[in-house]
Design a binder for these strands. Structure first.
Lengths: 122, 122
DNA sequence: CATCATCAATTACATCTGTAATCGTAAGCC
DNA sequence: GGCTTACGATTACAGATGTAATTGATGATG
């Protein structure tokens, strides 16, 4: 099942730290989203039915924690984009950003380092 | 406005070749999608209202062509993913795929070539 | 104990998306 | 010129999504 945009904001919060209460998450998302607490609770419930998170009772309330791993989510999302737009490969995406002059110095340095690392690995 | 998944399939067809009739597009998408012609027409109409394409009359029918450029669409989609998941930068995405051992030989060769090219460019 | 506050659970409702079917119209055919 | 056909335009309808409000239960408080 798919994680929606709004749901992913809640997931990011849980990946940052967990387990957490609905109120706590609502307070945290408030910096970027203009959401009522009720909205956050709806999103948490949808994530529960999607089995992306679990809830454990803590007195009169619940604490939520991710089941889905961020790295897996990141990978699935990225792979889907690469498949749809870049023949499933990483390099064409980098080439695209290179052509658009959208590679930062930091990016270039890091890419160089990665290539070196890969070279050393064999 | 956002281009949906199904709509992007139609866009890809128009980017491949244009202008084209609805029937022609339907025939082309049939290889990958199990769509009725009516479905393709709905998608074309939604793309029209989103100003992603235009239509010009050709006798009793229309021929459609993209307004939105593929490169711009690709860039917007990619940037959105990078912003949400990789601090807006390309290198962390490459690092992720590197860690997952998901870089093909072709990728690595091309990345090396890109870095070299960038180096030579200054 | 009656009341209030606090949670989660349930319900709501508009918009977007996927996937068509139906309607209306004009062009071609007998 | 009526009848069929081939289009686009309009309408349909269920599920996902964004964004809550309302209800119901339970623990805290006077």
């Amino acid at each position: 099942m798919q994680i929606s945009e709004a749901e992913s904001v809640v997931m990011e919060e849980l990946w940052r730290e967990s387990p957490r209460s609905a109120d706590d998450i609502a307070r945290a998302t408030a910096t970027s989203q203009d959401w009522q607490v009720a909205t956050v609770k709806t999103l948490l419930n949808r994530l529960l039915t999607k089995k992306a998170i679990t809830a454990e009772q803590d007195g009169r309330r619940y604490l939520y924690r991710p089941l889905l791993k961020r790295a897996d989510y990141v990978h699935a999302s990225s792979k889907s984009l690469l498949d749809r737009l870049f023949e499933g490969r990483v390099a064409p995406l980098v080439a695209h950003f290179s052509e658009r002059k959208k590679l930062s110095k930091k990016d270039i340095a890091e890419l160089r380092r990665l290539i070196e690392e890969i070279d050393n690995d064999r």
